[in-house]
């Protein structure tokens, strides 16, 4: 049937170890047998669609209710998995090591636009863009913009090319 809860596979291991496979939230509702409804539902909907629209609507509502109930996870019911600082770091190291073995390139620091410099204060306090360069840029931008607007496509050949004639010629050749 269609509504399987994949977490059932994990039931054996749950609670035994708190490794990366352990679920953060227990799902108390989905483990109860209440929610196996879609099968009966589809039958009911099929019956009622013709004769009892009122009934069908109620069933629909009941279906929505049950679906919502099955999808809901009661957070308050599950025990809290609080990690202390040491355990957190341990896991971080553990996961990083695993990722490293799977893909050595994944964790490599990215290539950055800037190179490392020893003295950030010197660079941060450096003069801003000089007025000369600002003027150069202003002038160049205006000139280039004007030049770009002057670009026109000059066509030197026929705009309409009669493909039909060539096609017929090609077909007659292939025959």
């Amino acid at each position: 049937m269609g509504c399987c809860f994949s977490c059932n596979d994990d039931d054996d291991s749950q609670g035994v170890d708190s490794s990366e496979r352990a679920r953060l939230l227990q799902d108390p509702v989905s483990n109860t047998p209440v929610v196996r409804v879609p099968q009966s539902d589809s039958r009911v909907v099929g019956n009622s669609s013709g004769s009892h629209p009122q009934r069908g609507q109620e069933d629909e509502l009941a279906k929505i209710l049950q679906e919502t109930a099955s999808a809901m996870i009661d957070v308050s019911g599950s025990g809290s998995h609080s990690l202390d600082q040491r355990e957190f770091q341990e896991r971080t190291r553990h996961y990083l090591a695993k990722v490293q073995t799977l893909s050595p390139t994944l964790l490599r620091p990215p290539n950055l636009l800037l190179g490392d410099t020893p003295n950030p204060e010197k660079h941060l306090g450096a003069p801003l863009i000089s007025q000369e360069d600002i003027d150069l840029m202003e002038w160049a931008m205006n000139e280039v913009e004007a030049a770009l607007y002057s670009i026109r496509v000059v066509h030197s050949e026929d705009l309409v090319v009669p493909f039909g004639g060539q096609q017929q010629a090609a077909m007659s050749v292939s025959d």
Partner: peptide
């Protein structure tokens, strides 16, 4: 066609 753009960029290249 784009001759004017080329001219303009050349003018920029000529700047000190």
């Amino acid at each position: 066609m784009e001759a004017q753009l080329e001219d303009q960029l050349n003018a920029i290249m000529a700047r000190p």
